[in-house]
Design a protein around this nucleic acid. Structure first.
Lengths: 191, 191, 191, 191
DNA sequence: TATGAATGAGGCTTCATTCAT
DNA sequence: CATGAATGAAGCCTCATTCAT
C-alpha cells in the first residue's frame, strides 16, 4: 500500500472528470441543458454537488468542457480520413466521415445542435466548431474546383449542409432515417 | 364614456395577443426559450407580467401559440405554390417555397429548430410540423418516381434535409450564406 | 315606460347585492374563502368584476356582508322560538332552533366555522356572533338554574357546544349524521 | 475539518425538520394556512426559503407532515389510556383522553379544525383522522350498548361531538372555558 | 478529497383592485 | 350602470453556487 503518486492522483481526477462529462452529456442531450440541474448530474454520477464543483467551476464550464471534448473527437474522426482529396473515392471517405460522427456520437451531435440554438451560451465552442467546418469546406471546395465545377464553394457548403440536415432529422426521428442508404445517394449526387 | 362594445374588446385582445406573440417570438429566437423570462417578454411588450397571463395561460401556451401561428404561415406559403408537381419548373417552385420560408419567417424558422432540440417542450407543435413535412416529402417523392429515380423517397427526404441544413447554417451565420445562389444550385442538383 | 323611480333602482341594487352574496356564500363554503377568486364570483353571478366592486368595496367587505346577513337570519330563527324558557318543552324548542340553523343554512354555517378558524379576518362578525351566543347561553343557564342544576352555566355552554359539535361533524360528513335522531337524544340528555 | 458522518447529517435533518414543522404549526394555527406564506415560515424559523424546500416538497407537504405528526401524537395519547372500556371509570379515562389532546396539543387541534374547513386541502390527513375517530366512536358505542342504551352509536357520536364542540369554543375564547369542570360534567352526563 | 446543508436571486403564476371607455 | 383590460404586489418554487465540517 504505497502512497499514490502524484501521477496516479492526476489519473483519478481525469477519470472522474470524464465520468461527470459523460453523465452530463447524456442528460443534456436527453433533457436539455436548462432542464438538467447540477444536482441531477451529481446524483447520476453518484457524487456530491460539492465534488462536481471541484472539477468544474460552473455548470457552463462543464458544458464547455463537453463541447470541447466533442470537437476533439470530431477532429480525430476527420484526421483518420485525412489525406489528399482528389478522387471521387476520397470524397466518399469525407462523406463517410460526416456520417460516422452522426453514428458514433449521436448525443454529442444532438447537444451540438441544441446548443447552437441557444445563443449567448458557448460562443467559444461555437467558434471552434465553425472554424473546423470552414477548413473542411475549403478542402472540399478545392475538390469541386478541380473537377471544374462552376460554384465549388457553394457546392462544398451544400454538401456540409446536407449532412447536417440529415443529422438534424436523424435526431428528431432516427427510426425514419436510413443513414447507409442516404450516404450512398449523397455520394452519387455530389461525386 | 359609453362602455366599449364587444367588438372593441375583441379587437384590443387580438392586437395585444399578436403584439405579445411577436415580441416573444423575437426574444425566444434570439435568446432561446428557457433564457427568456416572462418578465422580459412583458417588459419588451411594455405591458405588465399579469396582463400576459390574461392572454396566455402559461409561458408554454405562449410558445405553442407562436408555433401554431408559424405553422399556419408555413401552410400559406405552401398553398401559394400548390399545384401539380410534374415538370422541373414546378419542382423549382417547391424549392423556392422552402427558401421563402427561411427568408420570410426567419425567426419562426430559428425558433422551430431551437425548440425541436429542447426535449419535453412542445411535443404537439412538433407533431403538427412533422405531419406537414411528411405530406410535402410524399408529394416530392412522387415527382422523383415519375422521373424514374431509383430512390424517390430518399431523394425527397434529402432535398428537405438539405433545405433545413441551409436554413440551419443561415441562422448561425447569415452573412456567409447566399440564399439565392444556393437555391439555384440545389435545383440543378435535383432536377 | 316611465323612468324608474329611485326606489326601483334601490330595489334592483338590493337584489343584485343579494345575488352576489348568495353566489359568494356558495363558493366560499364549497371552495374556501382564499381559494375563491373575485373573478370566479363575478363569473358565477354573470356580472363583471367591475360591477361587483360597485356593490362591495372589497372581497373582505363581501365576506363581512355575508356573515352579517347570516347572523341576521340566525337571529330570526331564534326570535321565532323566543319566549319564556321554563318548561322542558320550551328547552326542546331551543334545541330545535339550533338544529334548524344547521338544516336551513348549511352553507352559512360551514362558512362560519371556516371563518372562525381564520384569525385576523372578520373579527367584527366573530364578535357579533359570540355576543348572540352569550345571550342565548345566559337564557339557557337560567333554565338549568330553575331546575336546580348545580352548574347551570356550564350545562348551558355544553348544550351549545354539543350542537356546534354536531354541526361541525355534519358538515364534514353529512351522510353519517341523522340530525333528527340526534336532536331527540340531546333533548333527553339535557331536559 | 473531517467531513460530517451520515449520522450527523441525519441529525441535522431531523432537527431542522422538526424546527420548521413547529414554526409552521404555530403560524398555521395562529394565522391560518393560506394566510401564512412560506416566506413567513422561513423567516420565523430563521432559515432561507430555499432550505425549507430541502425538507418539504411543497407547502402542502409541510402541512401534511405536521398533520401526520399530530395524528401520531393523538394516537399516543389514546394508547396511554388504552384498555377495556367497561366501567364508568374507564369511560372517564376516555373522556379525559379527549381533553388531554385539547390541553396538550392545542395548536394541532386548532389547525385540525381549520384545515377541515378548507376544502380541497389535505384530504389524505382528513381521512386518516376520521378513521381514527371512527374506531374510537365504535369502541365507545360498545360501552353504551353494554349499558343497555337504546342508541349506543348516536350516544358515542354525541360524546365525541361534544368534546369537539368544547375544543372549538376553547380555541375561540380559551379564557371563558374551564376544561376541568366541563370534563367532569360531561362524564356525569354520559356515564 | 468529499459531503450535503444552506443561501438567495430569480422564475412562473395568481389575484385583488383600478380605470378608461 | 357595466365591462374587462390592465396593474403590481405577492405567492410558491427551483436551482446554481458556497461553505462548514
Amino acid at each position: 500500500m504505497s502512497p499514490r503518486t502524484e501521477k496516479q492522483f492526476e489519473e483519478i481526477r481525469e477519470t472522474r472528470k470524464l465520468q461527470i462529462m459523460q453523465a452530463a452529456l447524456e442528460l443534456f442531450a436527453r433533457e436539455g441543458y436548462h432542464s438538467t440541474s447540477v444536482a441531477r448530474i451529481a446524483r447520476y454520477t453518484r457524487i456530491s454537488k460539492g465534488l462536481l464543483y471541484n472539477y468544474f467551476t460552473s455548470k457552463e464550464d462543464l458544458l464547455d468542457s463537453i463541447m470541447a471534448l466533442g470537437i476533439q473527437k470530431f477532429h480525430h474522426i476527420l484526421e483518420e480520413i485525412q489525406h489528399e482529396l482528389d478522387t471521387p473515392e476520397e470524397l466518399m471517405m469525407y462523406i463517410h466521415g460526416g456520417f460516422e460522427i452522426i453514428r458514433r456520437e449521436p448525443e454529442f451531435y444532438r447537444l451540438l445542435f441544441s446548443v447552437f440554438f441557444q445563443p449567448g451560451v458557448m460562443e467559444t465552442s461555437q467558434n471552434q466548431y465553425r472554424e473546423t467546418l470552414d477548413h473542411l469546406t475549403h478542402d472540399i471546395a478545392l475538390y469541386f474546383e478541380g473537377k471544374g465545377d462552376e460554384n465549388p464553394f457553394e457546392k462544398a457548403m451544400l454538401l456540409g449542409n446536407m449532412i447536417d440536415g440529415v443529422g438534424l432529422h436523424y435526431f428528431l426521428a432516427p427510426e425514419t432515417v436510413d443513414l447507409d442508404k442516404l450516404e450512398k445517394i449523397i455520394f452519387e449526387l455530389f461525386k
